[in-house]
Design a protein around this nucleic acid. Sequence first.
DNA 1: CTGTTAGCGCGTTCAA
DNA 2: TTGAACGCGCTAACAG
Lengths: 337, 337
Amino acid sequence: MEPVARVKLADVARIAGVSVATVSKVVNGRYGVSKDTMARVQGVIDDLGYAGNLSAAGLRGQRTNVLGILVGGFEPFAAELLKGAWTGAENSGYELLAHSGGHGHGWERRSLARLAGTLIDGAVLVTPTVLNTATGVPVVAIDPHYGPSSLPTVDSDNFGGAYTATEHLLDLGHRRIAFLGGRHDLDSGRRREEGFRAAMKAAGVPIDEDLAVETSYEPDLAAHATESMLSLPDRPTAIFAANDTTALAAMDVALDMGLSVPGDVSIVGFDDIPEAVAAPVPLTTVRQPLQAMGAEAMSMLLTMVRGGTCEQHVRMDTTLTVRDSTAPPASTAPPAS
Amino acid sequence: MEPVARVKLADVARIAGVSVATVSKVVNGRYGVSKDTMARVQGVIDDLGYAGNLSAAGLRGQRTNVLGILVGGFEPFAAELLKGAWTGAENSGYELLAHSGGHGHGWERRSLARLAGTLIDGAVLVTPTVLNTATGVPVVAIDPHYGPSSLPTVDSDNFGGAYTATEHLLDLGHRRIAFLGGRHDLDSGRRREEGFRAAMKAAGVPIDEDLAVETSYEPDLAAHATESMLSLPDRPTAIFAANDTTALAAMDVALDMGLSVPGDVSIVGFDDIPEAVAAPVPLTTVRQPLQAMGAEAMSMLLTMVRGGTCEQHVRMDTTLTVRDSTAPPASTAPPAS
DNA sequence: CTGTTAGCGCGTTCAA
DNA sequence: TTGAACGCGCTAACAG
């Protein structure tokens, strides 16, 4: 026994005394229905609270008027992009469907395959690493594997941001700087590391490779690495983490170890997620305009689904946002200017 | 000519030299396929990168292993709930689909009708005002129209939170307090107003009804109302807004008018969205544990889709979070203790 | 203007 | 162990 029968097109048709085709036309605002019939059918639709089944409509028709945002998970980074994408799609006539496809490798291709064409008319892909563009619907990538690719892409100046952040630490007098690297399978991750290394090199400061680790942006890995490094006899005086989540994990560890931030160790992050400013010690970080990036990607997608063409690559600026987690190293006098 | 053909079950079957039924069994791990066949089919699936179409599978089958979070829009409040719901669903074996159903009245019923049963096996409804439970799938409501209803519900102590916030302003010495009310069609909105009124009454401070307006949580309406009230000869010395979004809109207006916050006017919000702490003047607000609420709702939903029964009503505590947007009124000495 | 009909891609009988 | 056939709810041709 079905718990409750959902009302379907055929129910409306039966009660209104017309065929399903006619109801479909009314629902979709197609021409070829008399005013009378339309009114009667609409009345039944309202009475019954009928709303078309998205799966069925998508499976049969060509369009759904729904756009997708495909992410690995609803974490703070993706959530900011979501907010931006939503504002970018307001009054566009499209509904939004955000899909969290699980963490396994290749989720982006899988998500796309499962949704594209039938459920969504186009998609924004967040940090995709595998790009199989054979999907049949317009796709825009945010912060993908290989910077600008075959897909229209939105990213930010990761190299410049990392360079500036490292310079900031160097200017404060830090020399022993640890680097919590991100994901090497993302263009952004590699560029942040390049920016770090370039700034160190330009300052003539050698990098202790034991202090440069990769975390894949996993907070747990970052926490472990931080604990090891801060337990060293000659521990680093500063940590540059390739994203805020790992920076905050590092901060937690440092504080738990009884160290002062920034007194004993300075910490810089990357992204400027909302959690950065709300941290125990407000985090100095490289700001990416995440909401603007989401809105821009959505705007590009809208252009494409409407048949237009858009920029192949939009790069946003990053800005260093200095808060309370960075200061000169304790044992060092401020650098002579 | 189709742009690109998506790979479907039939393609896999053809290339593997078996029927679609066999491929379907392999995909869904059903019994009745020889090891050899299974391996060959799996190989083709991997080669082609096949992933089943969600619409078709949902339309035909009974379950999709996808849970929905239905919201009016991806704004900060909903985004926090999303983050929590995501953590609550990790390692559950379910994918998540967040749907932003547009702003029209009745979006929650419409969203549910379009997704439930075929696309999603259950749903978390965020601030629904119309609850037609005839959907056939388990549903959990967060912050609904009428507190605990026929649906399992998660909310927070809205009355107590508003009472405490008002007391805070009264304790600081404020007497002329404006109230930017929320949505009367939400239980939470009415309770916040009740809390405000109860605290004022308990303190013996009369409410100037001209200073108590409803904004429906619309920032524009809040901004207008604030501008009017702050232009009064005897303007209020404090504003209690029923949510952070309207509180921040009020703050913008006050600052734009050249007033000091909290020097000229104190402002208190409700929710503690991430934007509250990042505001020009960090906002004093009543904190709802939004992420915990999202996680709890998802956990209840998981229990239900797995056939269990869950609490009918979970109420979370609210806590006043004092930041920089509140202070004693300028012209008044601190109250004698 | 209205109704009949044929699938969209898949899961599930049931027969081979 | 495998495959053919049916139908989920809907849209789009086309026929009336």
